[in-house]
Amino acid sequence: MQGPGTMTGMAVPSTSTLTVGFDLDMTLIDSRPGIKAAYVELSARTGTPIDAELAITRLGPPLEQELAHWFPDERIQEMGDLYRSLYPEFAIPPTLAMRGAREAIAAVRRVGGRAIVVTAKHEPNAELHLSHLGIEADAVIGWLWAEAKAEALREYGASVYVGDHTGDVRGARTAEALSVAVATGPCAVEELREAGADVVLDDLTAFPAWLEGHTAA
């Protein structure tokens, strides 16, 4: 985990309201082009070789885990701070919305629910991504990875959590929320199922129909 989760000053919704949590990277957004650009710039600034193409195949865990492949332990905090300072300029503009991302959020609202984003990403940068792409969440909670995501999911009374990584599955299960996995990130369908995902979808374009059936049931 990169640091303590924060609730962005928003009121925590009633647990009687359907609340669906979403992961960010490779679930709602395809951040690979932007993150690659940020790593290329970090490499140029520090003179340290970084295989940016390899790094973007491992999205999901906290930044520090990736930096540990390229920098000694004593420099990871410094490099993390530098990377995050570069991120708004280099990573936000090239990042794209995943197919079905806006429609998935709209589907939650259509059934009277709230959509929150729970991510391991630095929270201000997560908010910049959503604002740049016009994806409106009811709350954004950053700095939480894997089982730690259960903090926010429980706090907001989320009964469903949607993510692309086995860490997201673990977070949902820790929070006793339904784990809906999308096979759009680094984890294959069978890997997500073996991790305990309750539902596995090819991508978010299938989510509105699934949610309609879920709420009807």
Rank of each mutant, 00 (worst) to 15 (best):
A126P: 12
E66C: 05
R32I: 06
V169R: 03
W210G: 03
R173L: 15
I116C: 01
A107R: 04
R84Q: 13
E103W: 00
A137C: 06
E176N: 14
A115R: 08
T174I: 01
A175S: 10
T205L: 05
V40H: 06
V200K: 04
R75N: 05
R109H: 15
W145Y: 13
G163E: 11
L201K: 03
N125V: 10
E127Y: 01
H69S: 12
S14N: 13
L59V: 14
A181V: 10
L128I: 10
E151Q: 13
A91N: 01
L178W: 07
D25P: 09
E176S: 15
L86K: 00
G80M: 11
V12F: 12
L204Y: 04
L42T: 06
A38M: 08
T27L: 12
T19G: 08
G213C: 09
A101C: 07
P61G: 10
G185H: 01
R75C: 02
T17V: 15
A38N: 13
E64T: 09
P62Y: 00
M79L: 14
L86P: 04
I56C: 04
L24S: 03
Y87C: 06
A172E: 11
G196N: 07
R114F: 09
R110I: 01
D23C: 04
P186H: 09
M26N: 13
A206S: 14
D30Y: 04
D30H: 11
H132L: 01
M7P: 00
I141N: 11
P208R: 04
M7V: 12
L63H: 02
A120I: 10
A37C: 08
A150T: 08
A52P: 14
P208K: 03
G213I: 13
G185A: 03
D30L: 07
H129F: 05
A175T: 09
H132E: 14
K36Q: 13
Y161P: 02
L211Q: 15
V199Q: 08
T205D: 00
A148N: 12
P49E: 04
V117Y: 00
L18I: 11
A152Q: 09
W70C: 00
A52D: 09
R45Y: 03
R154N: 14
G80N: 10
S159P: 02
C187D: 15
A120W: 06
L153H: 02
P61V: 03
D138T: 11
A52N: 10
V140H: 08
A146F: 08
D164P: 10
P88W: 00
A11C: 02
G142F: 07
L82G: 03
S43F: 06
W210C: 01
A55D: 10
R154M: 15
R170L: 14
Y87S: 02
G3H: 07
Y161L: 06
M1H: 12
P33S: 10
V182Q: 04
W70Y: 15
A216I: 05
